Amino acid sequence: MPLKDGRYTGPLYRALNPVYAREPLSGRGAELYGGRFNAKGTPALYTALDPTTALREANQVGSLQPTILVSYTADLGPIFDTRDAQSLTRYDVTDTLLADPAWRMKMLDGDKVPTQDLARALIRDGFAGLLIRSFAKGATAADFNIVLWSWTGEGCPLAVVDDEGRLSRM
């Protein structure tokens, strides 16, 4: 599988709202609105291991909206592996909690969001991100995402694949 010694090296994909196309490394949308694994105010990049999963993740509500697919090269770590039951137990987390479809309603209602609490604990413990199964409609057990909280600087290089500078022309 994609992690070796807690690191992920390889391609990643994101389907971006065109509003953020000029800043594909910003994490700004997630910071403004929050997500399953980041509270409002915490930047995050929600990436996928394949383009189809990235498109599913970005268009979970309603019809397909305008989307820009971006590819990255990554060498990231440490990455928390949610497939490891023993690691989940250390953080008092279950597969059911990870998959809870009510996280968004809890966040909107101002309630505690356990997956955001997990993210805060993992950030505190020095993890750059986590590997998590996709819960988007149509995803299978083989579709995975990597959610990143740290993607720049030493030990976490992430680069946009844009050899022709197409994003800067938008």
Rank of each mutant, 00 (worst) to 15 (best):
P2K: 07
P2H: 10
L3R: 12
R7D: 01
R7Q: 12
P11R: 12
Y13Q: 04
A15C: 12
N17P: 02
P18F: 11
P24M: 11
S26D: 02
G27E: 02
R28F: 06
G29H: 08
G29V: 12
A30G: 15
G34F: 01
G35C: 09
R36Q: 07
G41H: 08
T42G: 06
P43E: 02
T47S: 12
P51W: 07
L55P: 07
Q60Y: 04
T67G: 05
I68P: 01
L69V: 11
V70P: 02
V70L: 03
S71P: 05
L76A: 01
L76D: 01
G77S: 08
D81K: 09
T82Y: 03
R83F: 00
D84R: 09
D84M: 07
Q86W: 14
D95S: 13
T96F: 12
T96K: 07
A99N: 07
P101I: 11
A102C: 06
W103A: 14
M107F: 01
L108I: 07
D109C: 13
G110T: 06
P114W: 04
Q116A: 08
D125W: 08
G126I: 06
F127D: 03
G129I: 01
G129Q: 00
G129D: 00
S134K: 07
A141T: 15
D143I: 02
F144K: 04
L148P: 07
G153V: 13
L158I: 05
V160F: 06
G165L: 08
L167H: 03
S168G: 10
R169Q: 12
R169I: 00
